[in-house]
Amino acid sequence: MTPDELRSAQKLTMANPERLRLLARVLTHPAGRATAEDLAQYAAADAPRDAVDAPAVADVEQDLDALVAVGLVAVVGPVPSYRVSSRGIARFGAAALAAPRHPGEAALDAHDHEALLDRVVETLTADFAANAGAGTVDRLVRECYSSLSRRIGSSGHLPALAAWLATDRLAAMTEVTHGSPRDVLFVCVHNTGRSQIAAAVTRRLAGDRIRVRTAGTRPVAEPDPMTETVLARRGLDGLIEFPRELTDDIVRASGVIVTMGCGDSCPVYPGRRYLDWPLDDPAGRPIEEVERIVDDITARVRVLLAEIDAADEAGSLDGSPAWIPRGWLPRAARRPWSTVATVLGVKGQRKAR
């Protein structure tokens, strides 16, 4: 399929309003991915009270398969769950946020960024109501939007990108299992090559067993084209994400932090496992070299996953929670989650160094 044919197929696929709503639900899902069952429950909750039939999981799966076929959504793990691809955010994220979330709600102008951000705040406030108030969510959403606009300039997909980033940062700040070895963070300099490859491979191999995040100490605006090409050959291109800045909140939420050429720039928190993988940067290298780097990272990821599984099994055998590092109980796990507001407050904001 040529690029023009792909774009035409995407437009035809997204002419269905329910698929726009589906894309928006996946984009702002607190877990960063969702199963067909999760999304069917969302649709049922949005359906009119007098609706006779709840949305069938099979219908949702059919729509998801259509989105996967044109590269707007990617399958995560051997047991399928779904996440929005970077292409899906860029091409249809704004339209998805503008679409009515339920029957009777008005559609928004996809070019009205302020209105889209207001809708994102409303959606995320409902999703994170147990842990964060509307003011906290509003500050974070607009902080993400402002930060992204300074880095990548004016773009039609900025509200959708801000929604994706704010959702993940809220999840990082409100997760009770801070420091879990099943929360893995991959960090490199530009967040376009090595960390993206590691994340894509981990998502495919581990599925929902591992929460994966990536970040860069000096992120750029777009993923590396050659990395995308090589990952596409392996069916992994939809599992990478837009480059993002390394922030304290995602480091705190991670139990395993893997650095790749930027170890000194990553904040250090007690109880985490830090690894440094000496890897070549794929940027500017010929495709054969990038293939070799992907093979190297894949082998390292397999070893890491085996170690996490073994440690988890050992923890469950001795009766202690597997995510708690030996001899250390994260203080965050004993605090009320109203502290999220403090983290986001004007005096509490901290930029990653």
Rank of each mutant, 00 (worst) to 15 (best):
P3H: 02
E5R: 09
A15T: 01
P17N: 03
R21G: 03
R21W: 00
R21V: 02
T28F: 12
G32R: 12
R33Y: 15
E37S: 10
E37N: 07
D38A: 07
A40G: 00
A45M: 04
A47F: 00
A51V: 01
V52P: 02
A58Y: 02
Q62V: 03
A66L: 03
V68S: 06
V70W: 00
G71M: 04
G71A: 05
L72M: 04
P80T: 12
S81P: 10
Y82A: 10
G88F: 01
G88S: 01
L97S: 13
E105L: 10
D109E: 09
A110N: 07
L117E: 14
R119C: 13
V120L: 13
T123G: 09
T123D: 14
F128D: 05
N131Q: 08
A132F: 11
G133F: 10
A134I: 15
V137K: 07
D138P: 12
C144R: 15
Y145A: 15
G153F: 09
P159E: 13
P159A: 08
A160C: 09
L161M: 13
T167H: 11
T167N: 15
L170Q: 11
A171D: 15
T174P: 07
T177E: 07
H178D: 06
S180T: 10
V189P: 00
H190G: 00
S195E: 06
S195N: 04
Q196A: 05
I197T: 10
A199W: 01
R203C: 10
A206E: 10
I210Y: 10
I210V: 15
D224L: 00
T227I: 03
L231H: 06
R233N: 12
G235K: 14
D237E: 15
E241W: 02
T247Q: 09
D248P: 03
G261D: 05
C262V: 06
C262G: 06
C262T: 08
C266Y: 03
C266L: 02
P267I: 01
G271D: 07
R272A: 12
R272Q: 15
Y274L: 05
D276F: 04
D280H: 12
D281K: 11
I293D: 08
T298G: 08
A299L: 13
V301H: 10
I308A: 02
D309T: 14
G319E: 03
S320G: 03
P321T: 01
W323S: 08
I324A: 00
R326F: 11
G327E: 06
L329Y: 09
P330G: 09
P330W: 01
P330Y: 07
R331G: 08
R335A: 11
P336H: 11
V343I: 13
V346R: 14
R350G: 04
K351D: 11
